[in-house]
Amino acid sequence: MTVTFPLIGEPLALDLLNTEAAVGDLVADPAGLTAWLSAQAGRLTPVDVVGEGEVAAVQALRAAARPALDAVRRGERPPAGSLTALNEALAAAPSHRVLAWTEEGGIAADAHRPADPARRLAAELAEAVAELLTDPRVGQVRGCEAHDCVLLFLPAHPRRRWCVASVCGNRARVARYYARHKGDAQA
Rank of each mutant, 00 (worst) to 15 (best):
T2M: 10
F5M: 11
P6E: 09
I8T: 13
G9Y: 02
E10C: 10
E10V: 07
E10H: 10
L14M: 04
E20I: 00
L26D: 05
V27R: 02
P30Q: 02
T34Q: 14
L37R: 14
G53P: 04
E54K: 09
V55Q: 03
A60E: 13
L61Y: 02
A65Q: 03
A68N: 00
L69S: 05
R73K: 12
P78E: 08
P78I: 05
G81N: 06
G81Y: 10
A85Q: 01
A89C: 04
L90Y: 01
L90C: 00
A91L: 13
A91P: 04
A92Y: 08
A93L: 03
A93N: 03
A93H: 08
R97V: 01
G106N: 08
I107L: 15
A109Y: 09
H112T: 04
R113A: 06
R113C: 09
P114H: 07
A118Q: 00
A118N: 06
A118R: 02
R119H: 11
L121M: 10
E127D: 12
A128W: 02
L132R: 05
P136F: 00
G139W: 07
Q140N: 09
Q140G: 15
V141P: 09
R142I: 13
G143V: 12
C144R: 12
H147A: 14
D148E: 15
C149I: 13
V150C: 10
L152E: 09
L154I: 02
W162D: 11
C163A: 15
V167L: 13
C168E: 10
G169R: 14
G169Y: 07
A172H: 11
A172L: 15
A172P: 14
R173W: 03
A175G: 03
